[in-house]
Design a protein around this nucleic acid. Structure first.
Length: 496
DNA sequence: GTAGGGTTAG
């Protein structure tokens, strides 16, 4: 509530004004005659309020409820303005976290004669809901009301299908379109790329008449996500240098993971400079966060922490803090990670499960066992965060590295069965192997056998433990067991 | 005075 008040004072005042004189104002509104100048004025006011605060659910709801109580719906005229308001409402709902409300609003007003705008917003709602069922219904409806050949509606259809993963349907609509615009192409390309159909996506990309920065960004993002950083980077270079297309903030966000995978510090630096030149680093905290992360992943913790320090406290968000903690973690700097965490608490930023995962990781890699356990306690008691399997994996790794195998095993045995997986036992088995604990190694191996009978790697690890402590007979026995079950491990090989 | 696309931390 406070946040709303701070962010949208204007709305609040108006809303207050509206409800303040509730008895008079609302009454007044109900008794407005249709199509009076006052009524039009109010409608316009509501529309512009919505435009200004289209991301605020409260604003949307306030306007919505005022719309309902104002009696507009019973007026016979100014339907075009009413439709304008309804469409804007639909747009706001479709963007937000509660897209279902858009469908409900539409359903409640089904006696209005809607236009093509309405249907594009409704289709966006389906996309946000990932509801292919509503998408199909709307597709049929679009035909019924006759908007099936509108480019915007068709594009929205392609988008809704693509987001829901119904790529065959998306392609079908796309293919049948008599006319397409750049956005249509972009929607199809990014839809295919998002679901991993890079080849098809790329061929459309190569085929499309004019490529915008959005087209380039979509395909680059596709390559990055499919773990093909070299292609992503070369396309990025081609776009920026040869085609002279200026990368947008989103292009940068798409290229950072590729930079990180290959560890290209030089590229990271030049993207940093570019972002600086265009003012992205200042205006967009996501860019700063990605830069911190990428610098760390490229091995330059110094640049990462300097960037973090140079960012004003006001701009830092949860991701910024988590990024710097995980940066320290990946560089084995447990102490620095801890200090960052404490500072984060001091400024009143509330950590989440990812923050704790990074922190526990830092403790594990930095050998800070007691501290790690203390943070686990804090996570449970001060923040009421229930550890998930990754937190457990981290803690067991931490205890295992430190040779505190009994505690690690005890913790593993306490993990709820619903989330327990074989990775936990393998982590513990690795620790048993490292610390030559045959007895526990056996116990853990039998756990693994219970959970995953087909996997060969653990047998080999176990038999290596036996062999390592001179128990060749047992190693032999285990190998035999493997042979009996026809399990084999492909030996590691290298091309170098 | 309403339309469409690409988005950070494990």
């Amino acid at each position: 509530m406070l946040r709303l008040r701070r962010r949208v004072p204007h709305l609040h005042l108006i809303a207050k004004g509206l409800s303040c004189s509730c008895s008079s104002s609302l009454h007044h509104a109900t008794h407005l005659r249709p199509n009076t100048p006052q009524q039009l004025q109010l409608l316009k006011q509501l529309v512009s309020l919505l435009q200004k605060h289209s991301w605020s659910r409260q604003a949307t709801q306030q306007v919505h409820s005022h719309f309902i109580t104002s009696g507009f719906l019973h007026s016979q005229q100014s339907t075009s303005y009413i439709l304008l308001l309804v469409n804007t409402l639909l747009r706001c709902y479709s963007l937000g976290q509660f897209p279902l409300e858009a469908l409900l609003l539409y359903k409640n007003l089904n006696y209005l004669s809607f236009d093509s705008f309405t249907y594009t917003f409704l289709l966006h709602t389906c996309a946000n809901l990932h509801s292919i069922f509503s998408g199909l219904q709307l597709h049929a409806l679009v035909f019924k009301v006759g908007f099936q050949s509108q480019v915007y509606v068709q594009t929205a259809l392609v988008y809704a299908y693509a987001v829901c993963g119904s790529l065959v349907e998306a392609m079908h609509v796309f293919d049948e379109m008599p006319k397409r615009n750049t956005v249509t192409w972009n929607v199809m390309i990014s839809g295919l790329a998002k679901w991993g159909h890079l080849q098809l996506s790329r061929s459309l990309f190569d085929q499309m008449p004019t490529r915008t920065v959005v087209s380039w960004t979509a395909i680059i993002d596709g390559y990055t996500r499919m773990n093909r950083p070299d292609e992503a980077l070369s396309l990025f270079r081609r776009m920026a240098i040869y085609e002279g297309i200026k990368p947008s903030e989103i292009s940068l966000l798409a290229i950072f993971p590729a930079i990180s995978i290959v560890g290209a510090l030089k590229i990271c630096q030049s993207v940093h400079t570019y972002g600086e030149k265009r003012g992205f680093n200042i205006s967009n905290i996501r860019i700063t966060n990605s830069l911190i992360d990428s610098y760390a992943k490229c091995g330059c913790i110094k640049s990462a922490s300097r960037l973090f320090e140079d960012t004003s406290a006001q701009r830092k968000n949860l991701v910024s803090w988590t990024s710097i903690i995980s940066s320290f973690a990946m560089h084995g700097m447990g102490k620095e990670a801890m200090e960052s965490f404490e500072k984060m608490e001091e400024v009143g930023m509330k950590p989440n499960r990812v923050t704790f995962l990074s922190l526990l990781n830092a403790c594990s890699h930095g050998g800070l066992v007691e501290e790690g356990l203390k943070f686990l306690n804090k996570m449970l008691n001060s923040y009421q965060i229930v550890p998930d399997i990754k937190h457990y994996g981290c803690l067991i790794d931490m205890l295992g590295r430190a040779g505190r195998l009994e505690e690690a095993e005890k913790m593993a045995l306490g993990i709820p069965v619903e989330i327990l997986n074989v990775v936990i036992w393998r982590t513990l088995l690795g620790a048993c192997s490292f610390h030559d604990n045959v007895e526990m190694g056996e116990r853990v191996t039998s756990k693994i056998l219970e959970m995953e009978r087909e996997y060969g790697g653990d047998y080999v690890l176990m038999s290596n433990i036996f062999a390592g402590v001179g128990m060749f007979g047992d190693a032999e026995r285990l190998r035999k067991l493997m042979d009996k079950r026809n399990i084999f491990k492909v030996p590691g090989h290298s091309l170098v």
